[in-house]
Design a protein around this nucleic acid. Structure first.
Length: 111
DNA sequence: CCTGTGACATAAG
DNA sequence: CCTTATGCCACAG
């Protein structure tokens, strides 16, 4: 099982790359923009391969609660949080504060 | 065609 | 907020 370079995954990567600095989005939002609103899980799975990519800010992608559910996929236990905080996004207890304020909707931003 | 798999989403308690 | 259960989707084999 190695999806690696598949159309769907590449689109996920493309969206991830488009996330502006200091902004975050959710797996569901990305999935929705891709036209597969109910395949948010696939987005997460696709992001699993993003670790191999250099230009994909996977730390800007969290679940709908703004919780850093995928932090365990990063090297350090708190690397994801540090990356977000370094961008000016307050994170506490694995959850983004004022998530609505930092939320970036690809469907809205990209039309 | 069927099975397994996921960094999700949602509902119920 | 938590846990548990269910649905859902795309894809590999």
């Amino acid at each position: 099982m190695k999806p690696e370079n598949q159309n769907f995954f590449e689109r996920v990567y493309d969206i991830a790359r488009l996330i502006p600095y200091g902004r975050v989005t959710s797996y569901g939002a990305i999935a929705k923009y891709l036209g597969a609103a109910r395949s948010a899980r696939m987005v997460g799975w696709a992001m699993n391969g993003s670790g191999l990519k250099e230009d994909i800010p996977a730390h800007r992608v969290v679940n709908r609660k703004g919780i850093l559910t995928g932090k365990h996929h990063f090297q350090g236990t708190n690397l994801m949080q540090q990356l977000l905080e370094s961008e000016g996004i307050p994170v506490k207890d694995n959850q983004i504060q004022d998530f609505d304020k930092y939320f970036w909707d690809p469907a809205k931003a990209l039309g």
